[in-house]
Every structure is written in C-alpha cells, then in structure tokens.
Design a protein around this nucleic acid. Structure first.
Lengths: 197, 197
DNA sequence: TAACCTACCAAACACTTGTTAGGGAAGGAG
DNA sequence: CTCCTTCCCTAACAAGTGTTTGGTAGGTTA
C-alpha cells in the first residue's frame, strides 16, 4: 500500500469520526461513512484496510496528542492543586479540539480494551489513573485536598466529571474551554454550596 | 400472544440487560443473548416480539421506577439542599439495584431519543432537567447554592457526576449506595479542596 | 503520444443479522 | 388415554454487513 495522500485520509477520518460519535461504532456501517464522504463503500478501502483501522487511527492519534499535553503538565513540577488545574484545563482543550474522538473514546474504550489491537487503551487508562490518583494523593499529603474522602472515589469523580462534558459540549458555544475548565474546577475544588462566613 | 410467564420474562430481560450493558445494544446479537440464557435465538421470540422490545421494556421499567422515587422526593416539600441530597441518594440506590439498565440508558438514550418508540426518553430528559435545574435555582435564590456559577453548567455537572458512577459501580462492593451518595454529595457541595480556617 | 499513478466506481463475495414458520417434548386437565 | 398449553428447537428467510476484485476517468510525467 502506497502513500495515499495524508490530507485525504485526515478528511475521511474526520467524517468517519463524526458518524462514529453520532451513531456509535457498531451502529455505523461503512456505507454510512461513505455516504457522508460522498463516495461508495468500497472506495474507502483504497485509503484504509478496514473499518476497525479507522477507529484505531482516530483513537490512537487522539491519545497520543492527549498524552503529549499531559506529560508536559506532569513534567512541569507544579504543586498538586496547580497540576490538577492544568490537567483539567488541558482536558477541556482536548475536548474542544477533538470532541468526536473523545466521545468515541468515552463510549467504546471500555469494551475495546479487551481487544488485543486496542491494548493501548488499557495502558492509557493505567497511566491516567497514575497521573490523577498520584496528584490527588500528593495533595492530600500536602494538606491541599481533603483527607476525609476516599481517594479512589475522588479520582473517579474528578475524572468522570471532566470527560462526560464531551457528550454535551459543542465547540463554538458560549464558553471557551478555558472558561468551562475554570467553572468546573471551581465546583470540584470549592463545591457548589455557599460557604458559611 | 398470551400470558407467557412474567417470571421467565424477567429472567430473560435480566440476562439481556447484562449483555446489553457489557457489549452495547448494537453490538449485541440476539444469538448472544440466547447463549447467555441457555437457549437458541429463535426461542427468544416466544417471549418477545423483537430485540428492540427487550430494550424498550428494560428502559421503560427502569424509568418508571426511577420517577416513582423522584416524584416522591419532589412532592415532599423539602428545601433545595435537602431535595438535592435526596435526589442524589435515590439515584445511587437506583444504580445499585438496576445497574445494567442505568448503564444502557447512559450509553444509548442519546441517539434513541430520536426514535419515535423511545419518545419517553426525551420526555424523561425534560423532566430530569426541570427537577434538577429547578432545585438548583431554588437553592441559588435561597442563598443555599453559589450564585456565581452558570446554573446550566452546574446542572450538567451534578447530573453527570451522579450517573456516570454506573459505569464503574459494582453492587456488593466496599461502599453502600448511601455511603457513596454521602461522599459524592460532600464533594459536590463542599468541594475537594481543604477550606482555609 | 505513451506510460503511469491517483482516487474512485461497479459489482459481487461470504457471512451475519433479526425474524419467522412449523414441529415436538413435557406435563397438567378432562 | 387424549387434549391442550407451555416452552423451546430446527431450519430457514431476506436484508444488511465488511470486504475484495477488476475496471476506469483524469491528471502527471516522460
């Protein structure tokens, strides 16, 4: 298989991503993708080996980019609270720029992680846990975060809170990703109740 | 179509629910359900009209039960904070008892809401929004909840944080639904940061 | 002009899908 | 024993699935 114009691939992956995100991977037929791209089903196979490899390419490029951002944050040597804030902000930026990929990841990653081809999903999940959980534990040790909460529960709470936003977030809406991140962080860190003076 | 033993129906719906929750509705074939139930695919059609009607029955009975609980809470005349606490607690009880149905609802409701047969999903979503959003607005007006947050953002925040728990919650684990609800409420209301004295 | 490459189409392939029709074993009722 | 009901099996169906093969229009290169 030869060059096959990277730009065209990206275009097709973008439309495939839209359909995957809207209908779900299993409910999406290659004919629907081809329709959305204005071509016939068989023609997709000039650019890709299989439907699965489209999904693979969408998810892996997304995760590669995400981890480039996360690793930069984690290597910056910030305090626990600043690390959490930076991770959340980067997550919302990622949702802003790759909403489809995030939605697909949210929906499919769980049962795909069994599949050998998508082993990197499980690995990414472990790195995820290490990064977030580690930050939270550092914060508890430093007296920044509350010690009376179950840390693993808090981890899932923070993690899910951020990523489910991809299910309703629309790029170009009223709020920028930074604004949403700021409000989310305010809720997660300070709570939604009015504090007694 | 005659009586067809309600107990057997419930058994089959339970196993169908397990498979739907684990693999997703579209990825689940009627043959997989039949395998899990120890019978052949065609035999399922003695009890149900179609694969879709199984999904329908699972989701509608779940929502009926959920709204019976919610309506009881909303009719109790509690204050906004107490209402929120009760709604969250009832939600975790529901997750505890109907985890599969909740997981299926989470995953499929969005694109099913278009389908006429599942119109009650969209209606339920509106009632959902009215209940949660109304409670939050009451709380802001009463000075219970912070006024500096976008209420719709807060609504989605609270709603999502509760329901995504269904994706990792396992009944019979370390925490009872009430304990989890208590910790979640503590995080949502007071935040995870240590408060300056 | 001739050869070649890119990007697609046309048509089929083997297989899986949800669903149906007819049959039969088991057991209770008369 | 006979009849009937319940519950499942056997075997097939048409439609839809991902994928392959061979062809071809149009541009680029020689």
């Amino acid at each position: 298989m030869v060059s096959r114009s990277p730009q065209r691939r990206e275009e097709l992956l973008a439309t495939a991503g839209e359909v995957f995100a809207a209908q779900g991977y299993d409910a999406t037929t290659v004919r629907k993708i081809a329709d959305a791209a204005g071509m016939l089903a068989g023609s997709l196979y000039y650019h890709f080996d299989s439907k699965e490899s489209m999904l693979d390419e969408i998810l892996s490029t997304f995760l590669n980019e995400l981890w480039a951002r996360y690793d930069a944050v984690l290597a910056a040597g910030l305090g626990p609270r600043e690390t959490l804030e930076a991770l959340v902000t980067e997550s919302f930026r990622e949702i802003d720029q790759h909403r489809d990929a995030v939605a697909i990841y949210q929906r499919e990653s769980k049962h795909l992680a069994d599949h050998p081809r998508f082993g990197y999903l499980a690995e990414s999940q472990r790195k995820f846990e290490k990064a977030w959980l580690g930050t939270l534990e550092r914060g508890v040790a430093a007296g920044t975060f509350r010690a009376d909460l179950d840390v693993r529960l808090t981890y899932r709470f923070v993690r899910d809170t951020v990523w489910v936003a991809a299910s309703w977030y629309r790029p170009g809406g009223h709020h920028s990703p930074e604004e949403i991140a700021h409000q989310y962080l305010s809720m997660v860190l300070e709570g939604i109740a009015v504090r007694p003076q």
